[in-house]
Design a protein around this nucleic acid. Sequence first.
DNA 1: CTGTTAGCGCGTTCAA
DNA 2: TTGAACGCGCTAACAG
Lengths: 355, 355
Amino acid sequence: MSQRKTTIREVASRAGVSLGTASNVFNDKTSVAAESRQRVLDAAEALGYRPNSLAAGLRRQRTRTIGLVVPDVLNIVFNELVEHLENLALSQAYEVIIVTSREDPEREHERVRALLSRRVDGLIIIPTRDWSATEREMRHHRIPVVVLDRVAAKDHFPSVASDNAAATRAGTDYLLGLGHRDLAFVINSTRLWNSAARVDGFLAAMRDAGLQDRARVLLPGMTEEETRAGVLPVLAGPDRPTAIFTGSNVATLGVLRAVQDAGLAIPQDLSLLAFDDFAWLTVLRPFVSAIRQPTEALAGHAWRILTAGFEAPDRAAEHIRLPAPLIARETTAAPPAMKAFSPARRRATEEAGPP
Amino acid sequence: MSQRKTTIREVASRAGVSLGTASNVFNDKTSVAAESRQRVLDAAEALGYRPNSLAAGLRRQRTRTIGLVVPDVLNIVFNELVEHLENLALSQAYEVIIVTSREDPEREHERVRALLSRRVDGLIIIPTRDWSATEREMRHHRIPVVVLDRVAAKDHFPSVASDNAAATRAGTDYLLGLGHRDLAFVINSTRLWNSAARVDGFLAAMRDAGLQDRARVLLPGMTEEETRAGVLPVLAGPDRPTAIFTGSNVATLGVLRAVQDAGLAIPQDLSLLAFDDFAWLTVLRPFVSAIRQPTEALAGHAWRILTAGFEAPDRAAEHIRLPAPLIARETTAAPPAMKAFSPARRRATEEAGPP
DNA sequence: CTGTTAGCGCGTTCAA
DNA sequence: TTGAACGCGCTAACAG
């Protein structure tokens, strides 16, 4: 109940050993006599001793802490990554400090500096659209960095992500196979390199099918609401696509709202394929077809590469790309044009056109 | 590009001032000549100086860091709380370190000790079912603590939560007003005090309506899957309730899966009211009626009380309870018994009984 | 196996 | 307004 926290010095003196011996007990380095060890442990327990990791880190020049930079706490994919990374870190007696950039490059930079001030041993970052300032900062400091999820075509740092282009290419092929010809790909931004890769995969598949003219890419904005507002006109318009492929879960949420607003039925009027899968997609109707990112494997590689960087700081940067499988559920079906008369389509057309 | 990070001493020497002056610049305490100040800032910039917060915290005996203990990173309610708390902390130049207990009392205790080792200035905790060990630890250390969300009837520490009993009472009254008489309340555990309060509110409303005999409380377990498995038999059974009130979003998810498995239609066969609201509930059909916790206000109070504790450590513990409004959407309707012949009900009965 | 000592980088005296 | 000295709590190195 002391005001000042108890120090290792007090523990040592109560145990009747020297400070160095007590330290050795807590860091079980060199052998300590079993008897002394027990007395130190008892003293620590009695005093409620909690090692001061600030002092230890200062002295040791290593904190056994890694920083994790995430754009958004409310995005389920990031949270899955966080969860797996935390498991890995704790299993090796590392701590992780999470900071959030809120998709803001300036804030990202500032938060990374805070991490640097805490002297983290390494950094895993899911960057914002423009993290050039942050990246420059990181190059200056000699700690291992791994770029996760939002990777660039050619990162300076090691990178780990899904194979976005292959996934959207496969997803597009799947929609084409269902009979769709008018496809729209909805994504928040192409300034994110992984988003750009998703668009590339979509466009490549459309091109291969000779449908480049029917391929639309919509970039309504970074938020759910912007997505809703931006997509609604095209859903309500006369040349509505028969299938929408969303490039992120933010886009999915926005598109679903726009579909509600437009009064369309999925998949009768419109098919929907989502990038990013999670629990709620499989519990309310219709179950959303989705591409699932292998978050556990992604986290595993990121951690492996980061810790390898602790041992050998100057190895060549590894770049991992993992396949992201498609899970077909209820929102993807043949397009309305291939069916008989469709009341829903007629309704939409009536609403869109003049009386 | 130096191996060792640059220190304030190097900054001072490059700026041609003493260490103490440089320190004053970064902590803008006592007045420093504008000229000296600028030279220090320039030197810091040129050297890529990052203050060492370990050393600062060690010396200052305050880290301007608070710890936040959360049971689960994947729960949206906790994440909303985290987001708001982080906003508040950053706005006052505090940092927050998040740790997760994974609903495990032992892990919670261990994670809190890690926070203590980091010498956090205060702690906000959403506790596990049995956090007595953690609580004992916290009482021994003299830092402000605020219990959030999962509060007890009478906490030793200040506490902030929704008024759970009032919310479920109002929710139950709403279902009764719709004509329901057979209600089941599904929740993960009553060892959580706030969960117990939710059950109390439900039972009180049923008792006041003279329906205590028709009130069922189901406790299928802590996970979504346990909930599904535990609820399915009662949904498939002959005396299925006409409405289900879920006490947490984990329970909601599990019940929705069980409803799928049982082949029931909501709200035709069964009404559903959920505790905890979030984006996906309003985007896939049917839109789920829910009780929304005021997460921003909860976070605001928690932060206010915590920071008040920094100034006046020995004030009486405040206990805040905030109203959580009900948002009626599509999953709550009159019970099937009040309508004409209901095929869905008949089907369920047939499936349940012998041929 | 144990005790002693010297910093880790910084903020805070206090004297000049 | 500035500079020098001290110590926050701990670990590492070395002597015993």
